[in-house]
């Protein structure tokens, strides 16, 4: 298994396309914030202002990188039949599966975290962090968002091993996750997503959005200047079901993925 894990790490480090995609995502996030303040304009919002208002969107789009990582790294061995050769050469299915699952479950969520956090960190260092929400709370939220990302990674792994094709993982992460993130912040809500979002522990995207969302209130004056206030608190009663469901569903997805792979005809 260690050989397979080392191999996965090597694939990850050499996957230029993946790094390019991750860097592009991070660059887009940075540009979104930079251009919102008018380029080099004087009125520049601190990074915590963007975090308070848009962290679920950043995190939802950043989870694309988790799906890409699973597809391009864990799923790569299906396209070139490496895994077939591995199995025929005597390696057990369990070693093949978990040798890929373990680095994916660690690396993909951390990649998503990096894609989310690095542009925010860079922007904050350049233009200020501000105090719209406490930075410590932001760090806490980002770390909590690892759990839904791990769950989503496990789901992508399951699809890759069932379909023996990385396309499903890549498609899911690039289409479904961002759509869900946007739908939850859109003014006209999609009824089904609204109902599912009412139970944030139900799906990984809804959990991710809820953990990144700061409850807010807004007011304005006669000159239509808008003022936002944010509540940094996240009740434990919201957090724990999301974490517990993430852990349980990660185990379920891995179980399903492994069971299918274990008896699957690899032809």
């Amino acid at each position: 298994m260690l050989d397979i894990i080392r191999g996965q790490i090597r694939i990850f480090l050499r996957a230029r396309t993946l790094h390019l995609c991750n860097l592009s995502l991070a660059a887009v996030f940075f540009l979104m914030m930079f251009l919102d303040s008018g380029g080099t304009g004087e009125l520049r919002k601190p990074v915590t202002d963007y975090i308070a208002g848009s962290l679920p969107v950043f995190a939802g789009f950043a989870s694309i990188s988790a799906g890409l990582t699973v597809g391009m790294v864990s799923g790569a061995d299906f396209t070139d039949k490496t895994i077939n050769h591995e199995l025929t050469s005597g390696r057990s299915r369990a070693v093949s599966f978990f040798g890929r699952a373990i680095p994916a479950l660690i690396g993909a969520p951390l990649t998503a975290l990096a894609v989310t956090a690095l542009p925010l960190l860079l922007y904050g260092m350049l233009f200020g962090f501000g105090d719209v929400v406490p930075v410590s709370e932001v760090v806490r939220r980002l770390l909590l968002m690892l759990f839904p990302n791990i769950r989503m990674t496990a789901f992508c792994l399951m699809t890759v091993f069932i379909l023996k094709n990385p396309t499903a993982s890549i498609s899911f992460s690039t289409l479904v996750m961002p759509a869900f993130a946007l739908a939850q912040v859109a003014d006209t809500s999609v009824p089904m997503i609204g109902k599912l979002a009412a139970h944030p522990f139900l799906l990984a995207p809804s959990g991710l959005s809820r953990l990144g969302k700061f409850d807010s209130w807004y007011t304005y004056d006669l000159s239509l200047n808008q003022y936002f206030t944010y509540d940094p608190a996240l009740p434990a009663s919201t957090v724990w079901p999301i974490i517990v469901c993430a852990v349980i569903m990660t185990a379920v997805y891995l179980l399903i993925g492994y069971h299918f792979f274990h008896v699957d005809d690899m032809a």
């Binding site: 069932i162 009824p191 089904m192 109902k195 599912l196 139970h199 139900l202 299918f260 008896v263 699957d264």
Partner: peptide
Amino acid sequence: KSTKWKIFWLIVPLLAIGVSKHGL
């Protein structure tokens, strides 16, 4: 004797959660 039909057993939980628009 095909394992690909196994996937259909995963559809029932999706139906149970996904069909009702009123939520859980």
